[in-house]
Design a protein around this nucleic acid. Sequence first.
DNA 1: CTGAAAGCGCTTACAG
DNA 2: CTGAAAGCGCTTACAG
Lengths: 345, 345
Amino acid sequence: MTEIDEAGVRAGRPVPRPTIKDVAALAGVSIKTVSRVINSEPRVSPATTQAVRAAITELGFRRNDGARILRQGYSATLGLVLEDFGDPFYSVLTDAVAQLVHREGYTLLTGSSAEDSVRERELVLNFCARRVDGLIVVPTAGQHDYLLPEIKAGVAAVFVDRPAGDLDADTVLSDNVAGVRAGVDHLISYGHRRIGFLGDRPDIFTAAERLAGYRAALAAAGLTVDESLIDMAPPQPPAIRDALTRMLTGPDPATALFTGNSRITVGVLRELPGYGRRPALVGFDDFELADLLAPGVTVVAQDPVAMGQTAAQLLLRRLSGDRGPARRISHATTLVPRGSGETRP
Amino acid sequence: MTEIDEAGVRAGRPVPRPTIKDVAALAGVSIKTVSRVINSEPRVSPATTQAVRAAITELGFRRNDGARILRQGYSATLGLVLEDFGDPFYSVLTDAVAQLVHREGYTLLTGSSAEDSVRERELVLNFCARRVDGLIVVPTAGQHDYLLPEIKAGVAAVFVDRPAGDLDADTVLSDNVAGVRAGVDHLISYGHRRIGFLGDRPDIFTAAERLAGYRAALAAAGLTVDESLIDMAPPQPPAIRDALTRMLTGPDPATALFTGNSRITVGVLRELPGYGRRPALVGFDDFELADLLAPGVTVVAQDPVAMGQTAAQLLLRRLSGDRGPARRISHATTLVPRGSGETRP
DNA sequence: CTGAAAGCGCTTACAG
DNA sequence: CTGAAAGCGCTTACAG
């Protein structure tokens, strides 16, 4: 084990780090010359360069980028605010964003809003105070006009997964309505007429869109919507159990289910064994191991990698000067039949 | 949709934001008074406060925290470097870290090394140049002495999941050896004597530790280690297929398997149907839906939430002045029997 | 090839 | 209750 020298480390106080001034003094040059060396500017004599390098190493100097950013006026920093790092959809999206923006030389500030609009605002404004060049945000259901002064001031903002209701800004979405329509059509094509829909809190944009897709699919097939086959409770086990009991028992039960997101899909899968004959099932959003379950779970897959990349690209384009009108990009979904959605009533 | 005024936004250039000076001018006070208002210092007259507040709103002023940090000398920023945001183990750990440090008022810089030590170094040193107060790092297999000057300079560093081989610093690990021993003992207790081990690249610390646990378990049970039942290839489908063929066919095949991480476990599950009678299986690291597969997959579960919290707590303790010797904290694992590991040869 | 001065936007330390 | 000056650690714009 390498020993770490604790000399000079004072409790609770940041240790003063050597500055460009200290390096200059030790090397016997001006701070401007040190600046030239650390920025690889031409026209510095080899001997001077050597001396400066030696001083840098001896002192353990590292340029303070905060000072540099202050002087230069831009930070090469982007902010990402999402709902939950632990959710696979967002973590995969995050990875895609991080890879792309790092490649362009940006540093990434991240934060999780936990679906709380107050927390989102705190995070976003903190990032703005740190002068991020741009933001990628999975917006909560609340208002977003607190962002207007920032956007006016030149902060680029891109929203992902949901629009920021009140703001006219670049937005990257899944085509929720078409995706759900395809999934419900699929069930209808197997002869189902009684299809239950388990959504999520209707104030969540995606939940509302997906419900609209469900209604549209039934309408297009000439089927009437039975409101008792619709459940928009948050994905808690008891709520799911109640909804299933309501839909799957009684004289005219549902023969198929469409679930509005993967948490609900998984929640339903855990409950289904208790309900006798298994209804056909199609879920919105893919999840790992869906193919290994028995039967495999048929899903309408989103593409979080592509969505993250698109968001990052839109943001980078803004940062390189694009001043065109806000764009709304919709990513197509893919129906992946695996067995659970291909049974007849 | 709210209109966004694009006036003053120049292509490709950051827009100059109003500063404390602009606010002072508009409010007819000194910048020091503005500073007092934005920092809620006492002893400012209500009238002055009102005037300043009005100017702030009118200009869309937001304090530049970069300047503040430069002057104050500490950044209230922490850096997190991990291997892959998309991996559930790390994304859950990230969420735990983010929640805890945000609650303490820190902003989080994040980056993914993609298991590349050069990339890790870049990220870490970039974070240090931005004067993070502390770092949490999932270290790659490479050297880490580049961090010594930074640590000497007062940057607190905590390593998670693996030690940084050459550095004597706070480290949070799973108890890999004991975890694997418990899992292999479990298989032995069901009568298995031919237990295959599918690990990962042996230069990865956790892979080596887990292999050691496997050997220790067999030794403790008086069983000889058959090297042909050990595979340490990275978790690619073809490599897994080859290893399974080698272990599960022939005159004296393995009757049970221990898989060294969840990617391998899942890879094995995908291949198993092709190999006749299903061997018993225990995997290291839990994964979502392991309980919903048929049979449920028995695992040795780690606790990424607790590990992230411990790492964050160690870091915060250092930041509040703890100068004690480096600590290495080992998190116990939990054997979760679900069916796949409870069959006899 | 090198350096002195000014300035980025704040806070600190003083003074009144 | 308020403000003028200095300074945080760099880079810019100039000068030589």
